[in-house]
Computed example of a mutant assay.
Amino acid sequence: MTLATGIGSHPGEDATAYAEAVRVVLGELSDDHGLPYVPELPGRGAGASMTGRAVAAATDLAFDLQPAGWRLTDREGVDQRRARSLLAQDLDQVEEQGQGYVGPYKTQVTGPWTLAATVERPRGDRVLADHGARRDLAQALAEGVRRHLADLRRRLPGVDRWVVQLDEPVLASVLEGRVPTASGFGRHRVVQPPEASAALGWVAEAIAAEGAETWVHSCAPGTPLDLVRGAGVQGLLVDPAVLSPGDHDDLAAALEAGGPVALGVVPTRDPATAPTEASLTESVLRWLDMVGLEPGPGLVVSPGCGLTGATSGWARQALALAAATARHLDGG
């Protein structure tokens, strides 16, 4: 069955907007073709950003917030406590509105390499610069995600399929040595594929230990889909518009093997002219025809990236269009 989902982020800057985002997700994605998810509202501040969510979930490591962003420290700072409190409040809202829900559900967290490229070491520069620090960060993230999943299972006992989406928009830059140093005059050294795969694998293993699936999302060009799949990741979420010819082949192989593969065909910002269900269905069918496949199990329809920059009206419409497209692809 073809599913519809979103990437995670929504517009809004307060608790009221968060409650509305949860209502939108559950309202548009609760039928047989839907994969609802835990929304994120980066507009609420650093503690609600992609990195802030990971900081809130990570265990055994302490962070504080500096002008340059999140930084590893010796003891937990007030901003990390606030990030954890905000996450708990948001999950309270998900739990309240999700009472009685039965079906699949998705949550999102920053992947180990994007996290290493955005968090600073205690004495400056990114964790990416220190082999031991990036290993410790990835392992702390793995344990934190495991506990996060256990908490979600308790809150939503009717969920029969859990998916954890690792957001890795910086992975390609990490592997190609394109992440700038703190000074901006240099670049961090290339991370070799075996190390990149190992860190992804630690997180994927922790997710699997909780009986959940790992999907990786990136709407950045050059993301190594073959490496990601080789790390124990089951699902891929991509924007077909940024794929290279080789990427299309890797994505087709993943779908042919059973997926899941999410095609980000729905615009993430309010378009001048909104696409129709028919036009989105046709775009997916054209892609499938190009790679020689038919609609089938494992196919997922989504926006190309997060909906942070959209209006609240378009965020709702984007999910509705994704769901309608999934139904059309299944002949509905």
Rank of each mutant, 00 (worst) to 15 (best):
E282S: 12
G264E: 05
A272K: 08
E294Y: 03
R269Y: 05
L293C: 02
G298S: 07
E277F: 02
V301D: 02
S283W: 00
L285R: 15
A274M: 08
P260Y: 04
C305T: 10
W287K: 06
D289M: 02
L288H: 01
L285Q: 14
A262N: 04
T268I: 11
G306N: 05
G304Y: 04
L263V: 13
T276P: 07
V261C: 06
P267V: 10
V265M: 10
E294S: 13
L263D: 04
G264P: 08
W287T: 10
A274S: 14
G306C: 03
D289L: 03
G292N: 09
T276A: 00
W287I: 13
L263T: 04
L288D: 01
D289N: 08
A272L: 14
S279T: 15
R286F: 02
A274E: 15
L280T: 05
G264S: 02
W287R: 11
A278I: 11
L288W: 10
R269C: 09
W287S: 00
V266Y: 07
P297C: 01
A274W: 04
S279R: 13
M290H: 14
A278N: 09
P297Y: 05
L293K: 07
P297M: 04
D289I: 01
L263W: 13
W287D: 00
A278S: 14
G296K: 04
